[in-house]
Design a protein around this nucleic acid. Structure first.
Lengths: 180, 180
DNA sequence: TTACAGACTGACTAGTCGGTCTGTAAATAT
DNA sequence: ATATTTACAGACCGACTAGTCAGTCTGTAA
């Protein structure tokens, strides 16, 4: 049986994603999770702390999922990274929207800036290691551009375009990087 | 002399960008603009309406600034578009952050979805017209990819990377598209 | 049986929110 | 000169907010 603290975190994640952090009251969370307010403040010191715990957990699982496979040729690693990220993206749109929301909502952005920086730096680092095996002189620029391409497609996919050609753009990127 | 309605819009834009829509109260806006609540609700029916008016105004000025120059070769138009967008981006970071915030904050996203769709469609349309003059068979895919590259670089620049190599990536994109 | 930890409850506080209302002064029309 | 509309002020309202607190319940170990 699931303990109530985990339930609170799960429910809060869903509500933050659906309604936004500011529009979700602690009372909302309590009601949806079927627990009392006292319990929430027994496990967490503040509403902010719930959010931080969510972000730390998800950062951990994101880095875990995107860790590189060092014994393959770098081109394969890039392709796998692309496939992996886009598959996560399709599988959990709401979660990626939540992340964009948190990163650009001034209040939450300040609250999480440290974690966000860590997450970005970790991704850049692991991509740069791959590009070091392809073109060490330009690996920094190529890494930033690689990340920007993926982020851009993700952003546009998550924004409002109807019938966004995600699959076509994914294939485009895979073809570009598999023979770089 | 500036009328008070414009002052309210200017002040509200700044506060929404700095603090976020939800964390900015109507009283905050009144105080910062030096007007009363009665005035604000004389000119606007709701807080939401202030936001909508801001978004409509900025959409208009954005489309105005990025309208294409039809008598030039398409490659030049692409380069000019890149230079134009990145120069706006550097000039008014806060404003672009506000847009991302509004687009991914569930409450404001719903409120503005119509305007957001219009804006995206207009940009896609004008980019596609350029690519039609380069490679009509692939113009849709190339347009989406072009927009994604610019959006991705912008997104990463606005997020949390320190010392983001915006200039280098801008040059990279210009070189890529000037001889496409 | 007793003693204790800590998970849990829900009423409560102090304050903020968007929005409304009444009133007034100035501008415009008649 | 008088009537009507417009622009504005600020007191006020009820709903909602994050967070607190005194006390209850349950399980476990002595």
């Amino acid at each position: 049986m699931k303990d109530k603290k985990s339930t609170v975190i799960e429910v809060a994640t869903r509500l933050f994603a659906e309604q936004g952090f500011d529009k979700t009251s602690v009372d909302n969370i309590c009601k949806a999770a079927g627990v009392s307010k006292g319990l929430v403040y027994h496990h967490f010191n503040s509403k902010d702390e719930i959010l931080q715990e969510i972000f730390v957990q998800t950062t951990k699982s994101m880095l875990e999922m995107n860790k590189s496979v060092p014994n393959e040729p770098p081109e394969n690693q890039l392709v796998k990274l692309i496939e992996n990220i886009f598959s996560q993206l399709e599988h959990d749109k709401l979660f990626f929207q939540l992340n964009l929301n948190l990163m650009f909502q001034p209040s939450t952005r300040k609250l999480l800036s440290h974690h966000i920086k860590e997450r970005s730096a970790a991704l850049l680092d692991s991509v740069k290691k791959i590009f070091d095996g392809i073109d060490p002189d330009q690996s920094t620029k190529l890494s930033f551009m690689f990340i920007a391409e993926i982020d851009g497609v993700s952003l546009d996919y998550l924004s409002v375009y109807e019938n966004y050609p995600l699959k076509a753009l994914k294939e485009h990127l895979i073809n570009k990087y598999k023979n770089i």
